[in-house]
Amino acid sequence: MASSSARAYPREKSLWLFVVPSALVVLGIQLYPVLYAVYLSFFDYHIGQSQPRFVGPDNYLALLGQDRVWASLRTTVILVASSLAVEFALGLLLALGLYKLTRGARLFSTLIFVPYLITPVVAALFLRWIFAARWGLADAVIASFDIFPPDWLGSPVWAFVTIIVADVWQFTPFVMLILYAGLQGMDEALLEAGKIDGASGPRLVWHIILPCLRPQILFVLAIRLMDSFRTFDSIYVLTGGGPGTATETLTMYTYALAFKQLDLGRASTLGVLTMLIVTGLTLMIISLMYRRERGAF
C-alpha cells in the first residue's frame, strides 16, 4: 500500500487534471446552486411581484412555526421508515428464497426485477389503475364479490399505505438483487460450520448470514434512505399530496411553495432544512459503514 502510493506520487498532479472537468461541473452546477439556495433562504423572494428583500432568519422561524411543515416532516419520516422496513424484510426473504432455489433463480430474479426498470411516473400510473376507486383492478375484483373495499387513494390512512405499496413494489427488487449478490459471494463453509454447530433457520440467518451481508445491507439502506427521502414522482401522480395534506412530504410541500405559490425564498428555506435532515441521517449510516468497512474506502 505505502510503496504503491510513493510510486504514484510524482504523477499526482497530472492525475488531478483528470478530475478537473468533472469537478468544475459539480462545483458550478451543483454546489453553487445549493449555496445560492442557502443564500435565498434568507430573503423574501416571490416571483412576479416584489424584489428579493433580506429578512434574516424570518423564513426559518416562520416555517418552523408552521404545523404544515411538521406534518410533512412526520409524513416523510413515517413514509421512509415504513417503506425501508418493508422493502428490507421482503428483499431479504426474496434473496434467501432465490439463494435456496436449485434452479430457476435467474428467471425469477428477472421477473421480479422488472418493476425496478420502469419509469417511476409510469410505475405510479400502473398502480393508480390498480387502486383507483371503483374502476381500478383492486376494487373491480373485490367489488365483484359484493364486498366494498377501503378507499385506497381517498382516505388519509389508506392513501398513505398505497404510497408505501408503490414504493415497495418498485424498489424491493433493488434490495433483493443486492442482497442476493451478497449471498452468492458468501463463503459456504461458514454456513456448513453453522449447521454443524446445530444452528437452524432463523438462527442461521441472524448469526451467520446477516453479519456476512453487512456491507450490502448498509449499502441498500443508505441508498434507499437517500432516495426515498426525495420521493416525488409516485406521490405527485398517485395522490398529489392529498387528500388534504395526508401524503404531503417535505419535497411535495417545497414543490408547492416554489412552483405553485412562486415563493422561492421559503421554498429554498424548506429545501435547506430537508437537506440538513437527510444529510445528517445518511452520514450516520455511512459512518457506520465506514467504521465497519474501512478497507472499502
Partner: peptide
C-alpha cells in the same frame, strides 16, 4: 464530498436551477 452531494434533495437544487 461527492457522496454528500449525491444526498442533496433534488427539490433544493431545482429552485436555483429554475432561477438561473
Amino acid at each position: 464530498g461527492l457522496l454528500v452531494i449525491r444526498m442533496f434533495p433534488h427539490i433544493l437544487l431545482l429552485i436555483p436551477f429554475f432561477i438561473v
